[in-house]
């Protein structure tokens, strides 16, 4: 469903993401982990086509993000780090607008908006102005915007950041539900980035850890936990300043010489 090959993003001398490759199958729910500045947001922006990679390619649902950008983007629902909301619009008006620019056919638009409102628990506030909503509700509107066109791929960048514990629980169970939903005959693919490790344990079946722009872990959660170590320990080891002594070696397709990469980015940061 998602194919990333050799993704790199460099800003002049600064290396944000270096040679990241992965392949995600339909129905997989992948947790994207990494310390701040590891390149999670940059990678997600490259997957959605917001940023062009310096090197490498992305294919979404069989469409190359460069060669067929519109078809690829149609398949993606994306919740950026800050939900892209217009404070002066009503919830319903906003979702209708997003449905229009996401190519939901006119005849199905009303139903699509109603469904998104329903799924995200927004039916009661549909006529409210977005700017007057609480942060938790705004986050839900952000999620509703990502699913209004029923995408087969959902990319969520820190969907629970800045919420209170109850809101976090609500959003988390909503994401888990969205992940269980199917799109046509295929299950929906979800990538979610977060700092909250229990979130990954609750929702994701596969874990992908980035550190200094490189992929350092890419394994099923069950396999990672089988060793007895907690996800926190695994995370700490994988993102330690000196790589090369991880208990969890990177997946076979990951770069083999982490050491030079790490030193490079250390010099540059």
């Amino acid at each position: 469903m998602i194919e990333a090959r050799g993704l790199s993003k460099r800003y002049g001398e600064l290396i944000a993401v270096e040679d990241v490759s992965f392949s995600i199958q339909p129905g997989e729910v992948v947790g994207f982990l990494g310390p701040n500045g590891a390149g999670k947001t940059t990678t997600m922006r490259m997957l959605t086509g917001f940023l062009p990679p310096t090197d490498g390619s992305v294919t979404i649902a069989g469409h190359d993000i460069f060669d067929e950008p519109l078809a690829a983007r149609r398949a993606v629902g994306y919740l950026p780090e800050t939900p892209p909301l217009y404070p002066e619009m009503s919830v319903e008006g906003y979702l209708t607008y997003v449905a229009k620019i996401k190519d939901v056919p006119r005849a199905q638009r009303r139903a699509a908006v109603d469904r998104a409102l329903e799924r995200c628990g927004l039916a009661d506030v549909r006529r409210r102005v977005i700017g007057a909503l609480s942060k938790g509700y705004r986050q839900r509107v952000g999620l509703a915007q990502a699913i209004v066109h029923d995408p087969s791929v959902l990319i969520l960048d820190e969907p629970t950041v800045g919420l209170d514990p109850i809101q976090i629980r609500e959003i988390r169970s909503l994401i888990a539900e969205l992940a269980r939903e199917t799109k046509g005959d295929k299950a929906r693919t979800v990538i979610l980035s977060t700092h909250i490790l229990p979130e990954v344990e609750a929702i994701c079946r596969r874990v992908l850890i980035l550190n200094r722009g490189r992929k350092v872990v890419d394994r099923p959660l069950a396999e990672l936990q089988a060793g007895g170590a907690s996800l926190e320990e695994i995370f700490a080891r994988a993102t330690a300043r000196e790589p090369g002594e991880h208990a969890e070696r990177p997946a076979p397709e990951a770069p083999s010489d982490d050491r030079t990469g790490a030193q490079e980015s250390e010099v540059r940061s």
Partner: peptide, 14 residues
Amino acid sequence: ANGTQELLLTSPIT
């Protein structure tokens, strides 16, 4: 400023 640019540029519009 709103961050809505990210919505626009990841939507299937030119």
